[in-house]
């Protein structure tokens, strides 16, 4: 007879529910990815079957979510020590690291294959490169080694409009690149504003964010410098003729507000504990990006040039 007491302990049975796996996909980031990818698709010349367009957007969103899951798998040690990320599925113990890794890999493969079948293999290759860039280049490489981590890593979050464009045309273009540039230049002021008031937490977990490495003053200057670049680039789609006058006005006004809030951050005192201007800039930066892309999409659709629906 077998002595059950001498048997090794059975592995813990998972209590993870589908919503825990959904949380691994970073749904809030996915919203932005869907919006910007649709904008890239809508702005592109040519047409794509509406069903294939929806499936392509879904594939891009799932690909972005898969990279988020792989990022959470790799960064679980950091996430567990920061208030903002402590309740994520892996550090809270709801999803096992191995399960999250497998989930991310399977979804990465599925999303790339689906985009290749629904749209074209150039767009699928671009999506695969984006996942690789976010997980390997940013998460595994840059994030823990350089204070410029989010500048270079920000490219991964900026690729979706170019992928959306590529899904329609099969190539990349200067217009898609301008949409990329808006998100790319927006990322540093957005994350450094957050890093300013979460500086201590990033320092405690050993992530070399700019305020910890170069100091608050340098960070404030860099935020303002990137904002100076972002404001005119935000208007570029109108100036280049692939966005209408409403977009032109909205991007001009919101760009002005962005600069004003970035200037308030620049004027902050050293050792400011409350960091109100940084918190305001962080909040407004989200509104800015959504505002620009929603306006671009709405105006493109209302002008009847939403090529994907033809």
């Amino acid at each position: 007879m077998i002595e059950t007491n001498s048997l090794p302990l059975a592995p813990r049975i998972s209590l993870a529910e589908p919503r825990d796996y959904f949380a691994l996909l970073k749904p809030r980031v996915m919203q932005l990815v869907v919006l910007t990818a649709v904008c890239g698709m809508a702005s592109a010349p040519g047409s794509i079957n509406p069903f294939l367009a929806i499936i392509s957007i879904l594939a891009i969103a799932v690909g972005a979510g898969a990279s988020g899951a792989l990022n959470m798998w790799y960064d679980a040690d950091i996430d567990g020590n920061m208030s903002r990320t402590r309740l994520r599925p892996i550090p809270s113990g709801r999803v096992a690291p191995d399960a999250a890794f497998g989930f991310g890999i399977i979804l990465s493969i599925l999303s790339v294959m689906t985009l290749g079948l629904a749209a074209n293999w150039f767009a699928a290759g671009f999506l695969a490169f984006t996942i690789f860039f976010y997980v390997v280049v940013y998460s595994m490489g840059l994030k823990r080694s350089t204070p410029q981590n989010i500048v270079i890593g920000g490219a991964a979050g900026a690729f979706p409009p170019m992928i959306g464009w590529a899904a329609v045309t099969g190539d990349v273009s200067i217009e898609g690149f301008v949409l990329f540039l808006i998100i790319f230049l927006w990322t540093p002021p957005h994350f450094w504003a957050l890093a300013l008031f979460k500086m201590r937490e990033y320092g405690n977990v050993g992530v070399p964010m700019l305020p910890n490495v170069a100091g608050e003053k340098t960070t404030r200057r860099q935020i303002f410098a990137y904002s100076l670049l972002l404001a005119p680039v935000g208007v570029a789609p109108f100036l280049m003729g692939f966005a209408g006058p409403v977009y032109g006005a909205v991007s001009l006004v919101m760009g002005g507000f962005f600069l004003k809030k970035a200037y308030a951050v620049l004027q902050m005192d050293d050792g400011d504990q409350l960091m109100i201007p940084a918190k305001k800039l962080f909040g407004f930066s989200i509104l800015y990006l959504f505002g620009l892309f929603v306006t671009l999409l709405a105006e493109t659709a209302s002008m009847g040039i939403l090529g994907v629906m033809v």
Binding site: I13, S14, E17, P18, I55, T114, L117, A118
Partner: peptide, 26 residues
Amino acid sequence: ETRARRKRSIAIAVTLVALVVIFYVV
């Protein structure tokens, strides 16, 4: 544990059916 496993199984089943439909229609 039974409830969580059942929910995961249903989610996997729904995803697989969705994939079959998507690939068929594509």
